[in-house]
């Protein structure tokens, strides 16, 4: 049953139709999540005892940083699927995630820098957390560069999948960097075995924002994947059928 669903999802016309039906729902939920998350975070949540209102940048910085790692894992997983089963959709998800992941990583680095200046007293330091996150940005950029360097896009996807899988080793390093080594960046607040060390009124908007970012990624990656898919399959019958009625 599950295998049949995966095989169906691997078929371009089915993927195109299903994603088209999902997108309006995803967009609606995403907007609601962003609205409630932002209102909760910027209006309802109390100011921090040490950082005052400046801590509110957490509602962009932390979701963006989580997404930078989450998107990478999706990319690596699609890469494995593309290498083992040669599924075209997996290849498309793989490469279209890279742009989005790079943007989230950039956002995490920039917001972190803006947060660091008033709180730590510096824009940037070469500690293990900041450096490994910067390395993640270069991994994304490497994936994009490698993909555009190879003309045959199916071969390119396989090459990129290997690079993405090799880079997976950086993900646990980013996460545990603050525990393994002494860093300027503080330890984890939420992703640890203890209870989160953040007030509930601050935590709930943060989690809403984190889920909102996941939806945003899903929407953008589906839109990009649909475009890419139409272009790649432009000579096939199902795409021709799709546009027969309209034009």
């Amino acid at each position: 049953m599950i295998m049949r669903f995966i095989y169906q999802l691997g078929s371009p016309p089915y993927f195109y139709a299903l994603s088209g039906r999902l997108l309006p729902w995803l967009t609606g939920i995403c907007l609601i999540l962003f609205a409630t998350g932002l209102y909760g975070g910027l209006v309802l949540a109390p100011a921090d005892y040490q950082q005052g209102d400046s801590f509110r940048i957490i509602y962009i910085h932390v979701p963006a940083a989580w997404m930078s790692m989450f998107v990478y894992m999706v990319m690596a997983f699609s890469g494995a699927m593309a290498l083992i089963w040669r599924i075209k959709i997996a290849e498309i998800i793989l490469i279209n995630s890279a742009h989005i992941g790079a943007v989230f990583t950039f956002l995490a680095l920039v917001t972190g820098s803006i947060w660091g200046k008033p709180m730590w007293g510096t824009w940037w330091v070469w500690d293990a957390r900041l450096t490994s996150e910067l390395l993640l940005l270069f991994l994304y950029l490497g994936v994009l560069a490698l993909y555009s360097a190879i003309d045959d896009k199916r071969k390119a996807a396989r090459a990129v999948a290997i690079l993405a899988l090799v880079g997976v080793v950086n993900i646990p390093i980013i996460h545990y960097s603050v525990e393994w080594w002494s860093t300027l960046h503080q330890g984890p607040t939420i992703t640890k075995f203890d209870a989160p060390s953040i007030d509930t009124r601050m935590l709930i908007p943060l989690l809403l924002m984190a889920v909102a970012h996941k939806f945003l990624y899903a929407i953008v990656v589906l839109l990009r994947a649909r475009n890419d898919l139409l272009w790649r399959e432009r000579r096939s019958q199902w795409v021709a059928n799709l546009f027969k009625g309209g034009s």
């Binding site: 109390p46 801590f55 330890g187 007030d199």
Partner: peptide, 18 residues
């Protein structure tokens, strides 16, 4: 030559901290 503040991983409103 340089002093940087390291903030901790705890976030709470001032009244809770008090």
């Amino acid at each position: 030559e340089e002093v940087l503040a390291k903030h901790d991983e705890n976030y709470m409103p001032p009244e809770v901290a008090a």
